[in-house]
Every structure is written in C-alpha cells, then in structure tokens.
C-alpha cells in the first residue's frame, strides 16, 4: 500500500506542502504519479505538485498506489484537453511547495483556453489556480457595459432565454407524450 519509496504504510504524498529544502534536512526521495488527458499523453507529476489538486490528492489517498502501480495506471482525465492538462501540470510543478503569490500573470489570455482551463481546474479542485482563473475571467469584462458583457461572455438575451425555455418545454412535452404512447403500447 505504499506510495513512497520508504515503504511507509501511509498513502499520503511524501512531501510536506511547505518548502522542504533545508541544509540539515535529509533528502527525501520524491514519489511520482501519472496523469493523462483526452490526447492520452502521459504526464509524470510529483506527489508534492499534485497536492494542489484536492481531487487527485483524494484519489491518491484512497487508492494507495505504489509507484509501479501508478505508472501502469495513469489517472485518466478524458474530459480535459491535453494542452490544458499540460498547463495545469506545469502550474502545479511551478508552485510545488511554495506559497502562491497574490497574482499569476502567466495564465492564458485567450478566451477559449481560459474557459477550458477554468473547467479543468474546477474539476480537479485546484483552489488557488481557480482563484487566479476567476480573476482573469472577471478581468474580461472590466469596465464593460451590460451589452458588452453579454457579448463577451456569450450570455443569451432574454428573448433567446425565453425561446430556449419554450423549446425545452415543447421537447419535454413530446418526450412525455412518446413515453405515454409507448407505455400504452406495452399495456396492449
């Protein structure tokens, strides 16, 4: 059940969250895990870096993989694009065991990437990175009018919302009618 090279019975990652480097402290061998996204490209990430993700941290704690098992069974995140997962892994590596600064200027400015990054980070439960991403999303509409905000964030107009609602009701009605007819057919 060991996840570290010392063979401890705990599956918790070997590294503490704060910087372990100290002249007197003995060198602790790092344990690694593997993750892949939609593109199946496997990323090797240290347990310390993965501590940023509450989801992965929980998975590690629950599964208690050895390093060999972890290598053979990378955590699959099929809902995350490869380049986005790469960004997340890079961020976790850069901020491994470090206090996170109040601002992070390295986040993507492109809307599509940022949107996917927010989805991924929220899914992986990386709180600090999510905070940065949310700030970046908020910056998109800084000083904008309601109309501009609607355009930038692709918010449907009231008319579009109403039309979508009508359409959904219509569809639900049809489905209900279909189910009733099917049930009547079964009864016969």
């Amino acid at each position: 059940m060991s996840s570290t090279e010392q063979g401890t019975s705990s599956a918790a990652p070997a590294e503490p969250t704060t910087a372990p480097e100290s002249a007197a402290a003995p060198e602790v061998p790092e344990s690694f895990y593997y993750v892949h996204g939609k593109d199946k490209v496997v990323h090797k990430v240290s347990a310390g870096a993965l501590q940023h993700s509450a989801l992965i941290h929980g998975m590690i704690s629950n599964l208690g993989y050895t390093e060999e098992q972890a290598k053979a069974n990378p955590f699959p995140f099929e809902n995350i694009d490869g380049d986005i997962l790469q960004m997340v892994v890079d961020w976790c590596n850069q901020h491994k065991g470090k206090p996170t600064p109040p601002e992070d200027t390295n986040l993507p400015k492109q809307k599509e990437k940022l949107f996917d990054l927010v989805l991924a980070v929220n899914y992986l439960e990386i709180k600090e990175l999510l905070t940065y991403c949310c700030k970046q999303v908020a910056m998109m509409v800084k000083g904008k009018s309601p109309e501009e905000i609607r355009e930038i964030w692709m918010i449907p107009t009231d008319a579009e919302d109403e039309a979508a609602e009508k359409e959904a009701k219509k569809r639900a009605g049809k489905e209900a009618a279909g189910e009733t007819a099917a049930a009547a057919g079964d009864a016969k």
């Binding site: 492109q110 809307k111 599509e112 927010v118 929220n122 949310c134 999303v137 964030w153 692709m154 449907p156």
Partner: peptide
C-alpha cells in the same frame, strides 16, 4: 478574440467565484 466563452455554462461555484471578484 472571437473564441467562445459561455460564462453561464461554467459551474455555478465558478460563476459565484467570478462574480465575487467583480468590482
């Protein structure tokens, strides 16, 4: 940038987090 960013499709928790950040 014309790429889509459907804000209302984000998770409700994320939407709230962004709204808290707005001035």
């Amino acid at each position: 940038d014309q790429a889509p960013f459907r804000f209302v499709d984000l998770d409700y928790v994320v939407i709230r987090e962004v709204l808290k950040t707005l001035d």
